[in-house]
Each structure stands twice: as C-alpha cells, then as structure tokens.
C-alpha cells in the first residue's frame, strides 16, 4: 500500500462568477521513504497540491488516500489530528511563534495530543538536538539566525515522529550555504529515519537533493521522473 495515493484530484476555486481550475485530475502515488521535489512556476498548482497533501485543504473532486485512509471524508478535527500525527510542516517563512522559546515552539504539536509536560520537554530537547540546536533551547526566534529558525521548524516537524515532512520552499528565505545545511538535514532524515520528504522548490539546485522530481504546469503534472544525479552533499 502506498503512503500517499491520489486519484484524479481536482481543485476549483470559485472567485465570484469565474471558476479557476488550480488542479486538473492529478493522480500519483508516493511510497514510504521517498524524497520528492515538486517544481513548477508560480500558479502552476504546486502549492494547492501541497495544501491538499498536507490535509490543510480538501480537493473539489477525486480521492486522496493517506496510509489507506480516505482523507476527503474526514471532518475538521479529524484532519487536525492527521496533521498532528502524520505530517510535519516546514514553511518558507519558518512560521515559528514569536515570543516563544525554541523549545516551546518544538513542544507545540505535542500540546494537542495529550503528551505529558515532562515527556514533551524530553522529546522537544532530543528533536532540537537532532537538528543541531543543542544549547539554544531557550532562545527566542528573533535571537536565532534564519537557518537556525528553520532548524527549529524542522525539529517541530519531527517531534511527533510523523512519517511525512512537507516543506514549502524551505530554503526560499535562506542563503546558499544555509540552504545546503537545511537540505543536508533533510537528506539525513530521509536516509537515517526513513522519513518521507516532499518539498516544493523553484530552484533546480535544491531539487537535485531529492530522489524524484515532479514538475507542475497549469495544474497538471508534466514530468515525474527519478533524479539521476542526486546531490548528497554540497559541492564545496
């Protein structure tokens, strides 16, 4: 059974009298442990697709099975529970809570699944350690560099042991060197912890870290092929 299986997913936005087709019958599947880059120009539907994969949005038609569960039939709170347990998000703008320490930011997903305060602390500490932020647990986001903030976000995505990380242009706000560090982190997580990583990017450099590249145009998948020359490390 594939981890993610979509069957003819369409998404139509209704803007007044005009209906905009953001996705047209997208069907594909992702196995456990894949590392996928989704590419495409702005407005190609990749973000819409990502939102649907992330259970933040529902398709207008079509079927989306996540670990065999039909996500389309679930309610708001059930989708929230799936996001909590199965999916970790990493955003371009980091999306950390300001005035909240790194540690507490990482603890955030566990506030919503009944983990005790003590366990929360332990798990958040070890997640921060695994992204190399040991000793910065009590720093606030504005005291951390962009790369460090993104690591906190990655730790937050990891902390619930979610099998999938969805990264929406995770390196969009970072310089080349820091981008390489973050991509290295993803590669490591994919290889060592067998976490499925799906990332959206504009940059071919970044896409090269993945094992499979899917290209979108006008709401449709145009190419879906394995990456022949995977970049393991930054060629410095």
């Amino acid at each position: 059974m594939p981890l993610i299986d979509t069957n003819e997913i369409t998404k139509i936005y209704q803007l007044g009298d005009i209906s905009v087709k953001a996705l047209c019958a997208v069907s594909f599947s992702i196995e456990n442990g894949e590392f996928i880059a989704i590419m495409g120009p702005s407005g190609s539907g990749k973000s819409t697709f990502m939102n649907i994969l992330g259970c933040l949005d529902k398709p207008t038609s079509g079927r989306y099975l996540l670990e065999g569960t039909d996500v389309g039939s679930l309610g708001r709170d059930e989708l929230a529970a799936i996001r909590n347990k199965k999916i970790g998000f990493v955003f371009q703008g980091f999306n950390l809570l300001s005035r909240t320490s790194a540690l507490e930011n990482v603890e955030l997903p566990m506030l919503y699944n009944g983990v005790t305060a003590k366990e929360r602390r332990q798990m958040a500490m070890s997640a921060l350690k695994s992204v190399g932020l040991e000793g910065r647990e009590h720093h606030y986001p504005n005291q951390l560099s962009g790369g460090q903030q993104q690591r906190v976000a990655v730790a937050r995505a990891l902390v619930n042991n979610a099998p999938i990380i969805l990264a929406d242009e995770p390196t969009g706000n970072l310089d080349t060197k820091t981008s390489a560090e973050i991509m290295g982190l993803f590669t490591k997580l994919n290889a060592e912890s067998n976490i499925t990583i799906i990332l959206i990017t504009h940059e071919p450099d970044i896409a090269e870290y993945s094992k499979r590249i899917i290209k979108f145009r006008d709401g449709c998948i145009v190419t879906d092929e394995a990456n022949k020359k995977i970049r393991v490390k930054d060629n410095d």
Binding site: R76, R83, N95, L108, Y112, R156
Partner: peptide, 16 residues
C-alpha cells in the same frame, strides 16, 4: 491570525 494558522497546521482542533 498567523499564530492560529500555525497552531492549526500542527494539529490544534476547533476546541483547542
């Protein structure tokens, strides 16, 4: 609003 969005993305339910 953004904070609420972040909380929802990481799994906060309606009543949370």
């Amino acid at each position: 609003t953004r904070e609420i969005g972040i909380r929802m993305a990481v799994g906060a339910r309606t009543w949370d």
